[in-house]
Design a protein around this nucleic acid. Structure first.
Lengths: 142, 142
DNA sequence: CCTGAAAATGAAAATCGTTTTCAATATGCC
DNA sequence: GGCATATTGAAAACGATTTTCATTTTCAGG
């Protein structure tokens, strides 16, 4: 994904935000890491690309990217906020291993829950689904 | 649910835990409040039942209840941990209003995602599903 | 290219929810 | 009742995240 990052930077620029080396680094870090990474991991990766990037900037940049629709927050139930590139399109969920904590992407999404919500007078505009269990490597504990 | 709380207290007692006025208050607060309440709300309600209950005790009691399978943690994506009575049986999800933050219970759960996980070498033992949108009272913003 | 207004950065301090420490208190088996 | 042990509460510690503020950087305009 070489041009993809540049496209996103252009998108930021057209939105009136400024493109800095730090933001480029965070964006590249996100592009290279898998999905649902925590801020610490993103910071570490970004630092390898551009050493001059502080943790605070990573937090701020991630929020800016979410605001621009370029990245999204992922809530998995542990104490840290995670982020990944992509939005509605490319919508997917996660398989979270209860043993090793690994997270893998699940691209399927068969959910006709809009109807369920509507039955309650509720308009469903998004949903969050996490499947918990044990990954192939860990196996189910005795 | 008068006897329900007592049953749960008995369950605690048989598990070697001690039953105190504070725990009774927290349990009653949970029984009277709706689902997915945050610790502050539970604390406030518990205090109305027994003024002598500290926030720390609420945290500890809630974890004890989770450990005993009497209560469960609910993760909705905001910054606070929520709790509610009940476990696997009585399994349900939530309709979370993006406007007012209200949470209502959704008792349906048609999810045949075990298969999806298995296809990835993953054994799904639980899942978490939250539907986000707008409740009847708020309506969808323009 | 310069220039300056506005945005972005970083380090330190502030927040905020939650957890731990520790001395004092309460529970419940004997 | 008495004692071993669990529980409590206040204060301090914690860890993730946010804010403050002085300094640096971007980039639109001349």
């Amino acid at each position: 994904m070489p041009g993809r990052v540049d496209d996103m930077l252009d998108q930021l620029r057209s939105a009136g935000r400024r493109v800095t080396a730090q933001r480029r680094a965070v964006l590249q870090a996100l592009a290279r890491l898998g999905c649902a990474q925590d801020v610490e991991a993103i910071h570490a990766r970004a630092r390898r690309i551009h050493p001059r990037v502080g943790l605070v900037t990573v937090y701020r940049t991630l929020e800016a990217l979410v605001g621009e629709g370029v990245a999204q927050r992922v809530v998995l139930g542990d104490d840290r906020t995670r982020y990944e590139l992509g939005q509605e399109h490319g919508h997917h969920h996660h398989l979270v291993c209860l043993s090793c904590g690994s997270v893998q992407r699940l691209d399927e999404c068969h959910l006709e829950s809009k109807r369920a919500g509507r039955r309650h007078g509720f308009t469903v505009t998004a949903h969050r689904l996490e499947l918990l269990g044990y990954c192939a490597k860990c196996g189910v504990p005795a």
